[in-house]
């Protein structure tokens, strides 16, 4: 499935990809189904589907509140799987799950990754499972060909090469300190980090956390292989609820255009 992720980058001019995040079940699971298809239609290359957690410690207020709304609406890991199965009947868009270690652990690493394979979900992003702890699911990830997506942050320093050299699928480069959420400026110079990654791997790397405007997305894509956007999309859902689909479509389209123009 690494190939499916790699192709999501390689198929575009310049090999740049736009990755869109959505919290599953916000405001309800049927809307998420619709939003995913709209984002695919608007040109999102990879869609990260967030499985809601009661205590999402890597998230800023926007996505945290989306998690709360989703859980209140009765979303469970199984219901997210059912929704993705429905998506798979009509779309082969590249998908990854983003969720917290406890949900994957509790479902059972083997059962969870087997389910991912069955649903053609290419990778799993777990922000509270760093390099040192990935060992406990690595063999399972390998068995099903569903990638553990590695994250690198501005504080990774000497860890960048170590993480990147073992990374599969794509590398999630965290733009700045702190949690997810819209930022107005990015103080960290990410070029050296991207440089270190490229020294050791040709696995594509995309930048996320805080990106909301086409200008920001273009800038991030110009120094890496793509941009990841979450909070800005979730904000649209927060504002328009079930009626968010056309607004999401327009937004994703503009972001994708900015990214591939690089």
């Amino acid at each position: 499935m690494t190939d499916k992720i790699k192709n999501s980058f390689a198929k575009n001019p310049g090999g740049k990809a736009f990755i869109a995040f959505i919290t599953a079940g916000d405001p309800d699971i049927d809307s998420t189904y619709e939003f995913i298809l709209k984002m695919a239609e608007a040109g999102a290359d990879i869609i990260e589907v967030g499985i809601p957690f009661s205590d999402p410690v890597a998230e800023g207020a926007v996505i945290q509140n989306a998690n709360v709304r989703s859980l209140k609406a009765g979303t469970t890991t199984d219901k997210v799987f059912e929704m993705v199965a429905k998506v798979r009947k009509v779309s082969d868009i590249t998908l990854c799950f983003m969720t917290y270690a406890n949900l994957v652990f509790h479902y059972g690493y083997d059962r969870f990754f087997e389910k991912c394979k069955e649903l053609d979900v290419s990778g799993v992003i777990i922000p509270d499972m760093p390099y040192e702890e990935k060992e406990e699911l690595e063999s399972i990830s390998l068995k099903y060909g569903v990638e553990y997506i590695s994250m690198v942050s501005p504080t990774s320093e000497d860890r960048v090469r170590m993480i990147a050299s073992e990374a599969k699928g794509f590398i999630y480069v965290v733009s700045s300190m702190g949690v997810t959420g819209v930022r107005t400026d990015f103080s960290t110079d990410l070029k050296p980090i991207i440089g270190h990654i490229r020294e050791v791997t040709d696995t594509p790397c995309a930048i996320g956390f805080g990106i909301s405007t086409p200008e920001q997305a273009a800038k991030m894509a110009s120094i890496s292989d793509g941009a990841i956007v979450g909070s800005a999309i979730v904000k649209i859902v927060e504002k328009y609820g079930k009626d968010a689909a056309p607004y999401i479509y327009d937004y994703v389209k503009s972001m994708k255009e900015a990214v591939i123009a690089q």
Partner: peptide, 10 residues
């Protein structure tokens, strides 16, 4: 263990 974001590992 150390189940924490990469940002805090160093």
């Amino acid at each position: 263990g150390q189940y924490i974001s990469e940002t805090l590992m160093n």
